[in-house]
Amino acid sequence: MVANQVAVIVDIVESRRLADRRAAQLELADVFAAVDARTRPSLPLRATVGDEFQAVYPAVGPALEAILLARLALPEGLDCRFGLGLGEVEHVDDGPIGAIQDGSGWWRAREAIVMAHDREDRRVPSSRSWFRGGPEHAGLEALVNAYLLARDQVVGAMNLRARRLTYGVMCGRLQSELAVEEGITQSAVSQALRRSGGAGLVTGIEQLVVLP
């Protein structure tokens, strides 16, 4: 029996408008490697074809944590879209650039990234992430997507400093350390985290990381 996992597909927002797509993909590869080092992927975030990256996580909570870290760490001028699919992730073969996989987790991740793109283009411009769990997980799907809609709105409104500070706190760094790096006071770090919503993001993911 193939166990359920969370397949994740990532693509670059408006990648065709980038002046140097290769440089952007290399920057993303560095960001995703740092995220992999701090999370628990079953399959690390890796480039596949074009502007797409893929990963697999053992459960919904770790997947949500990883994509939040990834968005917070993105360099200026780059943004990504994330599709998450809960379901079977089955190893088919070993290809020249890594494992070849199939299963309902991947089908749902593909559906999810299309849906995220659709919402971004229409009703919710801040939307960058979507989750598909299938009919057997309808309640979980609704819960996670409500969270993602709110989370994307908060992250999208953050400036680069607020993202850096939130990322640092999520990585377990002290506010005093972050203050030295930013050339501000610890009080200013705390205020920035509260005003930007970063403190809420950190607390929220601490609650959701235990999701099955």
Rank of each mutant, 00 (worst) to 15 (best):
P125I: 04
G134Y: 07
N4T: 06
C171T: 04
Q191N: 14
A199V: 08
S176D: 08
A179F: 00
R21Y: 14
Q54H: 14
S127A: 15
V49C: 07
D36N: 14
E27M: 13
M158P: 15
P135V: 13
G204R: 14
H137C: 05
E206D: 13
G183A: 09
E182W: 01
R163M: 05
R108A: 10
L143A: 13
V60C: 03
A3M: 13
Y147P: 02
I113W: 06
L148T: 10
L178E: 14
Q175W: 04
V202L: 05
R38M: 08
I100M: 10
S104G: 09
A33K: 11
A29G: 11
A3T: 07
E181A: 15
H91F: 08
G197N: 01
V31P: 08
E182K: 00
E76K: 11
R110T: 10
R161Y: 00
A116Q: 04
I205E: 00
V189N: 00
W130T: 13
L174W: 06
M115D: 10
G98Q: 06
F131Y: 13
F32M: 12
E88I: 13
P75N: 14
I113Q: 01
W107M: 09
D30W: 03
A19V: 12
V6M: 08
I184G: 01
N159L: 11
L178H: 08
A37N: 14
